[in-house]
Amino acid sequence: MNAITAEKMVLAFIGCVTFLIVALLFSILAIMFIKGLPAMHGGFLFDESRDFGRAGGIFYQSAGTLILMGVTVLWSLPVALGSVLFQTEYLESGKFKTFLTQLTYILNATPTILFGLVGYLFFGVYLEAGVSWVTGSLILAVMILPTLQVSIREAVEALPEKYREAGMALGLSRPAQIWRIILPQSFYGMVTGVLLGLARAAGETAAIMFTATTFSGIRFPQSFSDPVPTLQTHILVLAQEAANPESIAQAWGAGLVLLGLVFLLTLAAWAFRTRMVMESEL
């Protein structure tokens, strides 16, 4: 076999694999749309669910998901940002930097059910937060921490050294450099990280299923120890009622909304990332 034939075969293989992945993605999207759209009646997004989820909408589940995700970011962002700035601006040992980076990747690869288990034992039992939105958001915060950390670190490290040196040469202190050069210049990277982290949190079910969420009985949490209804739990519980076509239709509808949410977050992250690349080329 000569080199040109081999190249054509590799190209054909890569083309087939790419086509398969794209086809798979579009199939999932198509199924979600076909199955989910019938549930999208006028009040689906803004009505309360009724009859154990078989009728009505998903307002409180959507709100609960957004509450959980928003609080998750509030916990996670300062920690991720702090660790990135420590790693990139203060830590001088190259070996320790590499160690921290590897640790982040290991954390990223940890099965999410372990986050749920360990998180519940620590936050829920040891810190007595119980099954609550606080416990769930803390678990999700730890879970999305590596995603946020990696995205923010990439943005900060991509900042051209000349900006740091220009700041140094003007006698700016390190905190001033961080505040006035590094954070503004890395802004789009940070937003990208947050959106990707949110997308991951939005898609997560296992870790919060038994630690933070409830299917019924709660609209908005009234205290720190209340659980919260979420789209993920709503879908899972309804999907278990396979014999009931109304429940299944509602589950598909909620699934489509969740998918749309994740899709929007990813799209926004992509847009911000593009902006970040353009800014860095100035």
């Binding site: 040196e165 140094m168 003007l170 006698g171």
Partner: peptide, 11 residues
Amino acid sequence: YALRRKVGMIF
């Protein structure tokens, strides 16, 4: 930081 304000650098 005071040193760098006293000794400026152009790249």
